[in-house]
Design a binder for these strands. Structure first.
Lengths: 303, 303
DNA sequence: ACACCCGTGAAGCTTTGCTTCACGCTCAGA
DNA sequence: TCTGAGCGTGAAGCAAAGCTTCACGGGTGT
């Protein structure tokens, strides 16, 4: 393969009409230029430059090669410009994975702000369950993912770097006509005789309930197992029972339910930002990363 | 500037989907490929490949760069193909300088044969006088030139390489009704009382006459100074005098003159092939060089 | 559980490329 | 005619880049 640096030298020499001028322009010594062009001529198997008393002039082959060189150099510049566009966030795609319940509060704000700040970037958001999020992260389908965990079961995946975003306290959902509906705050010990609605499939919030009740000295009576928080709220609203939920999951609650804070002794869900710890990360990813951290910080201070 | 060899590596990796396969294909070790791509990523400032368990997959930036790489590589191949065309005599131009009197005999045959053998090459022939021929040769305007000299004044130009082509004996031109017109051969000593026609402007043939007459013991009587051999023949044909000429110059003589051979004691013109002694010469030039040598050899044996 | 394939890293050798220094040549001006 | 500036070139040597070898860790499929 022809050496492109030599071709660039040739093009400069042909343009300037002199090796010394080309050397000067490219920051080399005339000797280096002379040597490289000599090699290029040997590679080409034919003379590329007519040496004249005053500078040089391209031969037919030299002019031909110089033309090709210019094309190649233009293309390389274009490639560099493209990289600069990606780096400058004027182009590119970033994919983020999220879990469903985050989508109701923190995520919309992050997405809309990102779209506003970087109108030329494309942002793909995939919402799926925890296990798949980690897979997507590991195989590079998404560059960034939002994860969650609880204190007794911290996320720990090799080669995945985590940034805690916010603590998502567990809240109590009661029907609008429930005896506690008027209160803004209560404690677990006050709830010993309630019927409970939990998330099905051994969902972590079930364990939150378990642990909190045990700490308060009673065993919860399970009245219903819901598939999501919408379902849970619906059941709560008609008085089937009461339920626990992370606060972000009930950011826009069902009209016939009320949300009460609980004490800090009830475990809070932690929301994390995760990415593969690669040496290098795509610029658009870094931008989204920082933006999500910022949004989360604001969200934490004034929820 | 992005390193094209690295880009080629990237393109191969993207094509094959694996560093090892690319390394194999290009004759490197996987380690080398890995190291070079790592560097390329650092240069690019962003990841180019997603490392997966089974091979790698390009990132957005990687795919972009690989695309540019393919264009560059295609262009380089085209450049190499062009060089091969020049080398393979399927393309190119060669310029040759000649002196006028050679154009009547040896040259037409060389040109027509060259055109026949290399229909894709362009052959430019410039006819001019000796001094300018050397200049054209020196500044590369022509790659090859036909020159001539006489024994007492050999061509010797620095950095110009010479190949003797043929000896061009001096002949005698007489009118068709001249006393010697029936003979095929004569000697200078038989011509002591003739009137002579010579080439003007101190043309070398005047010196040939000078020297030959002196050797034969007489001084020639100059009747007319002609500007070229056509003019000289015309004057000879009407009986103004007789003239000397190189045989090639009167290859197609005037109908009313006769050409007689002279002895070897009359100096012969030497015809030479000249070129700059560059390390490298254009392939088309080399081809023409060889062809002219061949034609001259044939011409010499059966003139 | 095993071998196999993939990517990666450290160390070291070889090649390449560039600089420095010096020379020959040509042209322009004193 | 001489002289200096500009140009291309060459030898020597140094610094850097590139590649190989050898070795390891991790994931996959039998």
């Amino acid at each position: 393969m022809l050496d492109v640096r030599r071709l660039a030298l040739l093009a400069a020499v042909v343009d300037t009409g002199s090796m010394t001028a080309a050397a000067d322009q490219l920051g080399y010594t005339p000797s280096a230029v002379s040597q490289q062009l000599r090699r290029l001529e040997v590679e080409a198997g034919q003379p590329l430059l007519h040496r004249q008393a005053r500078g040089v002039r391209p031969t037919e082959a030299g002019a031909l090669l110089a033309g090709h060189a210019r094309h190649v150099l233009r293309r390389l510049s274009a490639a560099e410009a493209d990289l600069a566009e990606l780096a400058g966030l004027r182009r590119g795609t970033v994919a983020m994975g999220v879990f469903p319940t985050i989508a109701s509060a923190l995520l919309p704000q992050a997405v809309s702000r990102f779209r506003r700040q970087h109108p030329d970037l494309r942002l793909d958001v995939r919402s799926t369950r925890f296990d798949e999020l980690v897979e997507l992260l590991e195989d590079g389908t998404v560059g960034i993912a939002l994860l969650w965990d609880y204190a007794w079961n911290r996320v720990d995946v090799p080669d995945i770097s985590l940034t805690p975003l916010l603590d998502d306290p567990t809240v109590l959902i009661v029907a609008a006509d429930h005896r506690l509906a008027r209160k803004r705050f209560t404690t677990m010990s006050d709830l010993a005789h309630e019927d409970w609605i939990v998330r099905a499939h051994e969902h972590p919030v079930a364990e939150v309930l378990e642990r909190s009740c045990r700490a308060a000295g009673f065993t919860p009576k399970i009245a219903f197992e819901a598939n999501d928080y919408q379902e849970a709220q619906a059941m709560v609203s008609v008085g089937v029972g009461i339920a626990l939920a992370p606060r972000t999951a009930v950011r826009n609650p069902h009209p016939d339910v009320r949300v009460l804070a609980l004490g800090t002794d009830v475990p809070a869900r932690r929301v994390l930002l995760a990415h593969r710890q690669d040496r290098l990360r795509a610029p658009a990813e870094l931008a989204l990363h920082q933006l999500v951290v910022d949004v989360a910080r604001e969200y934490q201070t004034k929820p």
